[in-house]
Each structure stands twice: as structure tokens, then as C-alpha cells.
Amino acid sequence: MNNVILGRYIPGDSFIHRLDPRSKLLALLVYLVIIFWANNLITNVILSLFTLFAILLSGIGFKVFLNGLKPMVGIILFTTLFQMFFVRGGKVLFHWGIIEISDYSLTQAALIFARFVLILSFSTLVTLTTTPLSLADAVESLLKPLKPLKVPVHEIGLILSLSLRFVPTLMDDTTRIMNAQRARGVDFGEGNLIQKIKATVPLLIPLFASSFKRADALATAMESRGYQGGDGRTKYRILSWKAPDTLVIISLLGLGILLFFLKKH
């Protein structure tokens, strides 16, 4: 659980750290769109090099990103193997029962694997270099045009901020509860799948209980301090869009155009 880095912020003064959080969120949205244009070897290599360059600019070691991917290995492998064994089409290389491996299924499995790793790496880069409060401010700022439509912009930003803030706390609580259960003789890795699922029940109940207790305490604290969001509330953190932010968005748009023309039609 300590490897989960979603919601964690690593302080720094790199080029990526200094970017406006709004540009990082917009860059992430553009990245999520153009990654689906990377459907062959050349486009995936170009996108991978771009992602590695962005990680290098952040000043955060590659080991941190590798550790962050470890908790997602199961989901990545399951999705990749599903694509490999059950996607039909192309020249059949192996067939046994309902399992069929073809050159097309291998290609699709490789694409899915690459997309998972790249999306997780880029989204992790955004969260590691941006504080949760800055991300919430960025979301609120980007959604501001929807205010006339009665969209609760401030509340959405607040929910995002609290969610990201308490992800590491929940992970720490999970680790603490697991250690306490192990001390009482619970083995979370023993037995078959059903037994492993049953072993998580002593973990989930206290985790939910502590989460609701913390949420109630937070609500009471905000209410006792007279918290009111929305109009009329001043901000301590002022967002400032600068030339490097524009450069990042233009670079990603240029990358998207390149991938679009190089993708396999």
C-alpha cells in the first residue's frame, strides 16, 4: 500500500512543478485524446519518448514511477491477457478451446499495455508535481464558464481536493489495519481466491468505519469554522498562466497532429 502514489505530492522546483495547474490538467486531457492515435510502433515510440522527457523535466526519479505502477500490475496484466487470448482476427498462431492467439490479438495486447503504462505515468506525473489544493483550484477555474448553467463549480473543486487529499491517508490506514490484523494471525495471502476475499472482510469494516468517522469530523470542523464556498470567497493561491504553459499546450497539440498523420488508418 505504501507504493500507491496517487494523491501524493513531491515538492520540487522543476520546470513541471512551476507550470500552472490549469495547463497541466489541459495537457492531461489532450494527452488522453492523442494517446488513442498511437496505434503502431512508431507513434508509440514517439509518445513514450515524449513521456520520458516530461518525467525527466520533473526531476523525479524513474523508480518512483515504477513503484507507483506496481499496485496496478494486476489490472494491466489481466486486461493485456484478455486482449491476447480472446480478441479475434488476423492470422491464428495458437488455438486451444476458447483461447486463440493471433498476430492481431498480440498487437492489440501490446497497444493496451502501452496505453495503460503511458496514461498512468503521465497522470502520476501531474499529481506528483501539483498539490491537491492547486488541482482543485485548477478544476474550479476551468469549469467557471459553466457557472451560469448552475453547475456547482466550487463544490466540484472541493470534492476533488478532499478526495486527493485523503487518498494517501486511506492507504496509510489500510496498511496500519493490515499490520494489526496480521499481528492477530490473519494471513491475507493464504488460501484460494474465495479465502483471500474472506480475509479482506476484517480489513474493510474498520477501514469504512474510520473513513466515515474522519468524514464526520471534517464536516464538523468545517461547519464550526463557518466555512462557506462559492461567490464572495477570496483565494490565497492566485493562478498565473505564463508563456511556458502556452508552450506546453502547443507542444502537445503539435505532438497530436504528428501522431494523427503517422497513425495506422
Rank of each mutant, 00 (worst) to 15 (best):
I99Y: 11
Q83S: 15
S210L: 15
L149N: 08
P206V: 08
G226L: 03
K242E: 15
L41V: 14
V151D: 01
A27R: 00
I156V: 06
H265L: 12
N39E: 09
I34Q: 04
F65P: 05
L26Y: 10
P202K: 01
G185M: 09
K242T: 11
I257L: 15
K150S: 13
F188T: 02
L32P: 09
D172C: 02
M222F: 09
L164C: 10
S102I: 12
R88K: 15
I46W: 13
S210D: 09
L29G: 01
I156H: 03
R233A: 12
F260H: 14
T169D: 01
L32E: 12
L170P: 10
S23E: 00
P168N: 02
L239D: 02
G230P: 01
T174D: 03
I101E: 02
I197S: 06
L158W: 06
L49P: 07
K24A: 05
V201E: 01
N40E: 13
L160C: 02
V248N: 04
L247R: 14
A138F: 05
L239C: 01
G256D: 12
L133Y: 01
L28D: 03
T220E: 13
V248R: 06
M72F: 15
L218K: 10
E223F: 07
I46C: 05
K24R: 07
I112V: 15
P148E: 08
K196H: 10
V117T: 14
H265C: 05
L258C: 08
Q195N: 13
L28E: 01
I177R: 10
L142D: 08
A138S: 10
D20N: 02
Q108K: 14
N40G: 11
V153R: 00
S163H: 07
N44S: 06
R225L: 06
H265T: 11
R176M: 07
V248T: 12
V30F: 15
N44Q: 14
L142T: 05
L81D: 04
W241P: 07
D13K: 14
A138P: 07
L259T: 09
T79R: 00
S121W: 12
L66K: 10
N67R: 05
A219C: 02
F86Y: 15
P71L: 06
T79A: 14
L239P: 00
D20I: 00
D187W: 08
Y9Q: 03
I112L: 11
F122V: 13
T175L: 10
I119D: 07
I119Q: 07
Q181N: 02
F208Y: 03
K144V: 07
I177A: 08
Y9V: 02
P145S: 09
T51F: 05
I16M: 09
L128E: 01
I76K: 02
V64C: 08
G89D: 13
I42L: 15
D172T: 05
S211T: 07
K150G: 06
L255M: 10
L118E: 06
I76Y: 04
Y236M: 13
I194P: 04
R18D: 11
R88A: 13
I99W: 12
N3F: 14
R165E: 03
T246I: 06
K24H: 04
V33S: 13
G189L: 11
K91I: 10
L262E: 12
Y227D: 10
L41C: 03
R115E: 10
A209E: 13
F50C: 05
L25R: 01
S48A: 15
L81E: 02
L133P: 00
A183H: 09
S48E: 08
